[in-house]
Design a protein around this nucleic acid. Sequence first.
DNA 1: GGAATAACCTGGATGC
DNA 2: TGCATCCAGGTTATTC
Length: 304
Amino acid sequence: MPELPEVEVVRAGLAPAVVGAQITAVSVFDERALTRHAQGAADFAGRLEGAQVVAAVRRGKFLWLPVQGERDALIAHLGMSGQMLLRAPDAAPERHERVRLHIRHPRHGELAVVFADQRTFGSLAVDELLDTPDHAAGGFGSPLPRIPSQVAHIARDALDPAFDDGGFFAAVRRRASGIKRILLDQGLISGIGNIYADESLWAARIHPETEGRALSRPALARLLGEVRLVLEKALAEGGTSFDAQYVNVNGQAGYFAHSLNAYGRTGEECPRCAGPIRREAFMNRSSHYCPRCQRRRQGQRGSL
DNA sequence: GGAATAACCTGGATGC
DNA sequence: TGCATCCAGGTTATTC
């Protein structure tokens, strides 16, 4: 599923092809891909056609392309199965293709940017850019201190140089929720989904139901360090692909699935202690952890 | 404001 | 072979 490393691979793949390009035409095949754009397909296309892309930026799992004038941006969230693919302008339609942008780049010529999405949880929109409250860059990929209004409530991610470690520790220690639920709260720390939450907690040897307020600052510092290591390693390996749901802009899969220690390894030996990895229901999804390495302690919630 | 949960959605896997 | 059910999970709205 597209989490921070997967979205960053997409951003980095798109950037050379779209920055400096002019959007010449927009085709919307399925308006469900525009659930974030309330004004509809005609308005969406009208605001993009003729615009020139000036950057490709990412915060957490959100991606956006500011256009010339830096007042608006095309924003994209891949949801669970969204793909941004670079194709020849006359390429045959992709399976589950929802939107196609035709672009003209001064060096690369005519190209198509295809948004395909099987489960339709992803969406695109044209949104206004606001100043960032801290005057730091809105996200990775541009120094511009601006952020789309729909992304303004999303916290900085753990790889962002402007991420406030101390503020994060303090916010976690005020919460009674389990630490996994906190890691998935994009308003507190962005970019982490189910896979990297499980992997980071396994690496830090913390039980996923440990209450935030029960974790010491050193334990949280260790966890944040592991979050960063896991994200950086996944990024270096091109992200996690279990099937065709996540691919880069050229349709290629990532390799980090081979490096997972807990997620998706139910019943297999823990790489650290050889105990069996356990899977349990959590928030309408699953948690994977090692009950031997990630022991329950006092101050943990009841369900896992 | 924090916490918890349901709904949205498609297709592959599984069971009968 | 065909049908029904389960499962995957990010975000948002709703409720408490």
